[in-house]
Write a protein that binds this DNA or RNA. Structure first.
Lengths: 227, 227
DNA sequence: CGCAGACTTGAGTCCCCTCAAATTGCGTGG
DNA sequence: CCACGCAATTTGAGGGGACTCAAGTCTGCG
């Protein structure tokens, strides 16, 4: 990892708003800040690999990190995509001693790293940290349950429609926004090949969706909901 | 739920060996025993539904509990299957205030219930409980990651082969065992229609697998690994 | 302005789902 | 203990969805 450093003012600010630290009391925050190390990752950098001993907890400050598992043949299946504020690797962290998945920066990213042993040590003294970890895990579990069910219940166009709707206000107004990352990344997150995502967007043109590059216009959220 | 009761000697014994309580100190165990309520569920009984306010933590003592999500059209997708010793509902428990999935007894089952508010209260005082909860969540997250990747990477016969291998000793000896539950349940767990599971078993006959009712004989684990 | 990577589109294939019907397995009452 | 009947499972046929491979086309950056 490039440029290891102590958190500066800017990074401290971001960390304070992250999912993990935002719920902690001042003392726990201080303890965590104390052991935080900031790192700058180039795109495609691996944070850790499936099967390696787990010794670090990670938190995304900016950019995106992709979690995936590998086939013996080398094919990859994405299982999660973490963005700013998300906690990475809690999956294996408290459980076994090894990472269950591989983590890779999907674009140039800034992340915070915490030595896992020291996190455990702080958590054993301060219940607010322990609770926050459990909360984060709990939320992640719900998300993955949702992904799994979505995979099994819906077709590609339906999954894409649901993703788009989740980025809309609940009212039926037309909206437009920018995809936060590359389409190939979105495809992986939705469990699709990039071609399938492309075809899904193409089909959704008939249902009030216009896509140009990363720009998405949704002219009729109601129609989209009916897909 | 039928026959609510305080845990008797038999139930206390089972609870002590469960994933959650086995790691706790005596005092936390006592506190949890204090608030445990045992219930006997007939097959198909619903424990809780997706979207309901979450007020209970559950632990399977015997039998199996199926977690699934519902389509607007009423189709179901299983996301997890819990057996004896497993903790249910930790997914939504600490996170949001609502269950993220529906839980249904897959067969007549015995479960322990804990009032969630009181569990949180105990956890805020006793870090061993909080840690145990985080551990359980962590392990579950890893399992679901594995399911999701398995779904996306492997065909039905491959998924079935992997399931069978996971129930074998790592050595290459032939083995035979009884499936712990109905095939239709296994199908759901593997994300397959019952017909697809049946066809997979049929295909695996050519790779050293014999199935008669719930009895499975694996004559050549090596061949199975190559599928 | 041009290159490289990302995306789209087309063709072909395979996998798994759905529906329907036959068969087997298992628990229960006689 | 055996037969019956219901439910679970198996088998067949057909169809649709998504993957792979292979070209093209677009986009953004240098």
């Amino acid at each position: 990892m490039n440029r290891l450093m102590k958190p500066g003012a800017r990074e401290r600010e971001t960390l304070l708003n992250s999912g993990l630290l935002s719920a902690l009391g001042v003392e726990s925050v201080a303890a965590m800040m104390e052991i935080a190390v900031i790192g700058n990752l180039p795109a495609r950098q691996i944070l850790f690999r499936e099967g390696e001993p787990a010794d670090m907890l990670h938190c995304v400050l900016s950019g995106y990190v992709r979690l995936y598992k590998l086939d013996p043949d080398g094919r990859e299946a994405d299982v999660e995509l973490y963005g700013p504020g998300d906690l990475i690797g809690a999956s294996a962290l408290l459980d076994g001693s090894r990472y269950a998945v591989t983590a890779q920066a999907a674009e140039p990213s800034l992340i915070a790293r915490f030595d896992l042993k020291r996190v455990r040590e702080i958590a054993s003294r301060r219940t607010d940290l322990c609770t926050a970890l459990a909360n984060a895990l709990s939320a992640q579990l719900s998300r993955v349950f949702a992904s799994l069910a979505d995979d099994r219940l819906h077709t590609a166009p339906q999954r894409v429609a649901r993703y788009l709707l989740s980025h809309c206000a609940p009212d039926g107004r037309a909206v437009s926004f920018r995809l936060p990352y590359q389409k190939s990344l979105l495809a992986g997150k939705l469990g699709l090949a990039p071609e399938a995502l492309s075809r899904a967007f193409s089909l959704l043109r008939n249902h009030g969706v216009n896509v140009r590059g990363r720009l998405v216009q949704i002219t009729d959220p109601e129609a989209l909901r009916r897909v």
